[in-house]
Design a protein around this nucleic acid. Structure first.
Lengths: 142, 142
DNA sequence: CACATACTATATGCGCGCTTACTAAGGCGC
DNA sequence: GCGCCTTAGTAAGCGCGCATATAGTATGTG
């Protein structure tokens, strides 16, 4: 029983805490842009999807970003309120909303992307040459 | 720009998604015990601290578990409502609450611990012999 | 065409993770 | 004793992450 310094040096417990720390780093990097982590993920994913096949629905965006469809709906409405994205009704399917970035959204995501990438690189710099092995492990778990 | 299959095969993005998946596995493992992940972490950490130095305060528990003190307070009150922990006022410092597990709490954490460890082992089994390297990476990032 | 089925999006609600602000009590210098 | 700073805990509130339920539309089958 004494081999535990917490109840958990289980991989999962470490994973959890590392992710929380990483999210704090992301929050700090995104704060100047007035974006949360999920907002940025959705904007960036939307930017990519628009550039690779045209305006997606909320479903497709959520699937691509790995976000919950429910929350994706909420966040997109807030982003639409801020005029960062537009949510046009799909003429071919009046249930769906076709998403696209407004010019302001495009500009914001471009600026934020740089800070996020810098913060990401800085956060994982401590891994040194083990970074590739680490990423391989993550990919295997996904 | 085309090197991204999302805006992110950044390590952080992978880390985030892996952790979400791991948390779902934990949720499933803990659901039969009517515990959330954080509730379990606090119970398990409390169990360890009580066995290594006596009843801790909420602060000490939060620090040890790596949880937010605010949320720790909320969760502990709910656990106390369920008679899984007790929160006695510290006679030496009337601001602080000395925490301990009730017999029900001890029994529950013992049962839940087994399921959590099994789920954890199962989740990381896919890493095979790279598991140690992965955990080393996590530790380095913490 | 009518009906059943499936799908897109939303409303509601709970628990976490964190921020800001507050109360109350301890410790310290004097 | 008296201020001052620190510390333990709580209150209120925002944004995720998810489960459940519902409205409305599209599609397939008769």
């Amino acid at each position: 029983m004494t081999r535990f310094s917490g109840p958990e040096d289980s991989p999962g417990f470490l994973l959890w805490r590392v992710t929380l720390a990483w999210q704090r780093a992301m929050r700090a990097a995104l704060a100047p842009h007035d974006l949360t982590h999920v907002q940025f993920v959705l904007l960036a994913s939307l930017w990519w999807l628009v550039n690779h096949g045209g305006a997606p629905s909320q479903q497709r965006l959520a699937e691509h970003a790995g976000t919950d469809p429910m929350m994706t709906s909420q966040v997109l409405r807030k982003l639409a309120d801020r005029a960062l994205v537009s949510r046009e009704v799909d003429p071919a399917d009046s249930r769906a909303r076709l998403l696209s970035l407004t010019p302001e959204g495009k500009a914001l995501v471009a600026k934020a992307m740089k800070d996020v990438e810098d913060a990401d690189v800085a956060y994982f710099a401590g891994l040194g040459d083990e970074q590739q092995a680490f990423v391989r492990g993550l990919t295997r778990l996904l």
